[in-house]
């Protein structure tokens, strides 16, 4: 059940592009044609599914405070290597991308021809590193869930780039103000799509519950309220993940 929940949550509610703006650069640069957008989207799903679980293992067994103690013995339990996570994650991603490229080229030349040129681009796509960093900061409890999270986020990104590419192909025939053509209108469309995607926010929590929970914290100041809502939704996520942990422990 939690797999399904996390899966839909990472596709729609925490959509990489619309909720956290990850991978925007390639999202904007490679969305002129649907066919190339599909290629890049597929490559992103692929790489996220591989790297998120790998980085989960790294995080659990090397990077977390005390993680070394789990398998190296008690004298290593006091080490905290979490400051190394950026460099470890990016190294894993760069290596995996290279490896995936070589393997795909060897065993699936047809796939390589369609994905090939996008794979090197992906090493520096923020969606990939962002997937791992969010996996770390949301404390996803099991490797299975981490894989689901990677798959869901990848599919979310794929949907986003597919949608914008289709819109951009059509908008060519519209009479856009000259100064907005190209980049400007793409930004604004993405903004409108992001507003649309915000409506998925009520899908898992149920709107009423959320606002009741907020009230005690919010009364004091209006601007504090706005921030509180933002933090609250953040807390909401980690809370539901925490709930998952409890279920898994049980």
């Amino acid at each position: 059940m939690e797999h399904l929940e996390l899966f839909f949550k990472s596709i729609f509610i925490d959509n990489m592009v619309f909720a956290t703006f990850l991978g925007m650069c390639s999202y904007l640069a490679v969305s002129k044609k649907v066919s190339t957008a599909v290629g890049l989207g597929a490559a992103v799903i692929f790489v996220l599914v591989v790297t998120v679980p790998l980085n989960w293992l790294l995080d659990q067994y090397i990077l977390q405070p005390g993680a070394l103690g789990k398998w190296l013995g008690a004298e290593y339990a006091s080490y905290d290597l979490s400051f190394l996570s950026f460099i470890m994650f990016i190294a894993t991603i760069a290596t995996m991308v290279q490896l995936v490229e070589i393997i795909v080229e060897k065993f699936a030349p047809a796939l390589y021809n369609s994905l090939g040129i996008f794979l090197p681009l992906i090493a520096v796509n923020c969606a990939i590193l962002g997937g791992s960093l969010f996996m770390q900061s949301r404390e996803i409890p099991t490797i299975g869930l981490a894989t689901t999270y990677g798959l869901g986020s990848g599919i979310g990104w794929f949907l986003a780039i597919l949608a914008i590419a289709a819109i951009r192909e059509k908008i060519r025939y519209s009479n856009v103000p000259p100064a907005l053509r190209g980049l400007g209108i793409t930004f604004i469309i993405t903004g409108l799509m992001a507003i649309g995607f915000m409506s998925f926010g009520g899908m898992l929590t149920g709107g009423d519950e959320e606002s009741k929970k907020e009230t005690p914290e919010v009364v004091e100041r209006i601007e504090a309220e706005k921030e509180a809502i933002k933090k609250e939704t953040g807390a909401e996520h980690s809370q539901s993940i925490a709930d998952n942990t409890i279920k898994v422990v049980e």
């Binding site: 619309f18 956290t20 103000p177 000259p178 100064a179 980049l183 930004f187 604004i188 409108l192």
Partner: peptide
């Protein structure tokens, strides 16, 4: 304060600059 508005603000900046 919500994230989609950032996109629209940047879009408007681009619009102004290109005009």
């Amino acid at each position: 304060l919500l994230s989609p508005m950032a996109l629209i603000v940047v879009g408007v900046i681009i619009w102004v600059q290109r005009t």
